[in-house]
Simulated scan of single mutants.
Amino acid sequence: MAIRRERAHVDPVSPEPPVPDEARVVRGEDWYGREFAGERFERYTFYDMDWTEAVNDGAVFDECTFSGVRFNASRHTGAAFTNCTFRRCGFFDARFEQCKVVGSLFQQCEFSLIQVTGGDWSFAGLPGADLRGAVLDGVRMREADLTAARLEGAVVRGVDLSGAMLHSTTLTGADLRGSDLSSLDPLTVRLGGAKIDPEQAAVIATALGLDVC
């Protein structure tokens, strides 16, 4: 699937958002605890909704916009959110397992206690995201935009970050073991107290111009 947006370097909210298709606008509805099973939504816009404790098993959302949607304590398994935009959404204690979130952009969202296991989040835009304490385990995040993101104390294990944008990212105290750090510039990130394995140490040393013998 082609990615049709440019990756962001900041966390803007567009002053001129695309005009939604009124026939595909869902506004203010309470979907607390709703169950999704293989449904498909294309170019829908969801405004100010409660998706708390929703259970999403394999639903597909393509080019959808979520604004002010609360995903707190929701569970998503094998679902897809491709080329979507999330504005001012809440993901407190949300769980994503083996989901596809390719090309989606997150703006001014809250991620407390979020857990992501497996799946593909390549090209996702998370600039400036507050991911402190998040768990990212075995996720593919190739060329994801994590510019200035905060990942203090996060678990980022076995994550494919090849080509990811990590300028000004804070990784202090994070567990990075097993992740691809080939695109990390140690001079532009904060790494104090982060946990890394010997192979990653060699990659970082090489990036600093050291000769690893």
Rank of each mutant, 00 (worst) to 15 (best):
A194G: 06
T52H: 09
D137R: 02
M141A: 09
E16P: 15
G68Q: 08
A59Y: 09
D130N: 14
M1S: 13
L208G: 11
E143V: 01
A149N: 12
L176N: 11
W51V: 12
F61H: 05
L146R: 11
S162C: 02
N56V: 08
A174N: 07
E29F: 13
R177I: 01
R7D: 14
G125R: 09
C213H: 13
R70Y: 06
D57M: 03
R34L: 05
T170R: 15
G158C: 02
A194W: 00
Q115I: 09
M49L: 00
V203P: 15
G125D: 06
V60I: 09
S112A: 08
Q98P: 14
T45D: 06
N72T: 08
E42S: 04
V101T: 07
M165E: 04
V189Q: 02
V69I: 04
P12C: 02
L161P: 15
T117L: 00
P15F: 03
H167P: 15
A79H: 05
V212T: 14
D175C: 10
P18S: 05
V19R: 10
G128W: 01
G119P: 13
E199V: 13
V25Y: 05
G90N: 05
D160R: 13
P17L: 00
P12T: 13
D21I: 02
R70S: 15
W31C: 10
D197H: 00
V26C: 13
G28F: 06
T77H: 15
L105Q: 15
L136F: 07
G33W: 01
E97F: 09
L208V: 02
T172V: 08
T117R: 09
L166Q: 12
G173E: 00
G78A: 05
A73T: 04
E35S: 13
A134K: 03
P15G: 04
A174S: 14
F61T: 00
A23L: 06
L166I: 02
D50G: 08
E35M: 10
L187V: 03
I114S: 10
Y32I: 00
F106N: 12
D57A: 06
V203C: 09
Q98I: 00
D120P: 14
N83Q: 12
T170Y: 02
T45C: 10
T45L: 01
L113D: 13
E97Y: 08
A80L: 07
P186R: 03
R157L: 04
G178K: 04
A205K: 08
L166S: 06
R75Q: 12
G58E: 06
A201T: 11
D120M: 05
T206F: 11
P198E: 03
P17K: 06
R95K: 06
S67P: 15
V101R: 14
